[in-house]
């Protein structure tokens, strides 16, 4: 399953990049992420809770940064399991940053494999959940950047 989208942040590309790579700070902007810990400079462990209506998923897993081309491109791999739902998500996350006149456009592609029980829950739901999370992430990042600028 491929999920694509974009959002724009009002900040120069370099600032956005730095914020993105500040993983612990950045991860606070992903709805549902908790208990993030650093394994090494390239990999992190954390938990992600997602709720769609009555269905709750609690994934635990790792994020590994595979490719970094500052300040333009970032590729990460996410592998996370949800024991209770006997499910797993394996995803490659690619993000491309582009300078705009008044900010930075962040496009992302998530190439995700949902495996196990949750897989039959539906593509439409997964797509829209991911998009909502991205939108929330975008506005949260903007807030952080704005706060960072004033601070």
């Amino acid at each position: 399953m491929k999920i694509e989208g974009s959002f724009t942040l009002e900040a120069p590309i370099r600032t956005v990049w730095d914020y993105l790579l500040n993983i612990e700070e950045m991860s606070q902007c992903i709805p549902g992420v908790s208990a993030l810990e650093t394994i090494d400079t390239k990999s992190y462990r954390g938990e992600l809770q997602i709720k769609v209506g009555p269905i709750k998923a609690a994934f635990g897993g790792t994020v590994t940064l595979l490719e970094l081309e500052p300040p333009h491109r970032l590729v990460a791999e996410i592998v996370a399991d949800d024991r209770r739902n006997a499910s797993q998500v394996k995803a490659t996350f690619t993000s491309i940053l582009k300078s705009l006149a008044d900010g930075t456009e962040v496009t992302y592609t998530i190439d995700a494999n949902v495996r196990g029980r949750l897989a039959q829950f539906g593509q439409a739901v997964a797509q829209s959940t991911a998009k909502k999370m991205a939108a929330a992430f975008g506005s949260c990042m903007q807030e952080k950047i704005d706060a960072g600028e004033t601070a």
């Binding site: 009555p54 269905i55 709750k56 209770r84 739902n85 006997a86 029980r117 949750l118 039959q120 829950f121």
Partner: peptide, 20 residues
């Protein structure tokens, strides 16, 4: 807790173990 009415939807979810 979950409400059970006719059960046509919720029983499927229970069977598929999507909710517990």
């Amino acid at each position: 807790a979950k409400v059970l009415a006719g059960g046509t939807a919720i029983v499927l979810m229970l069977q598929q173990k999507l909710i517990a």
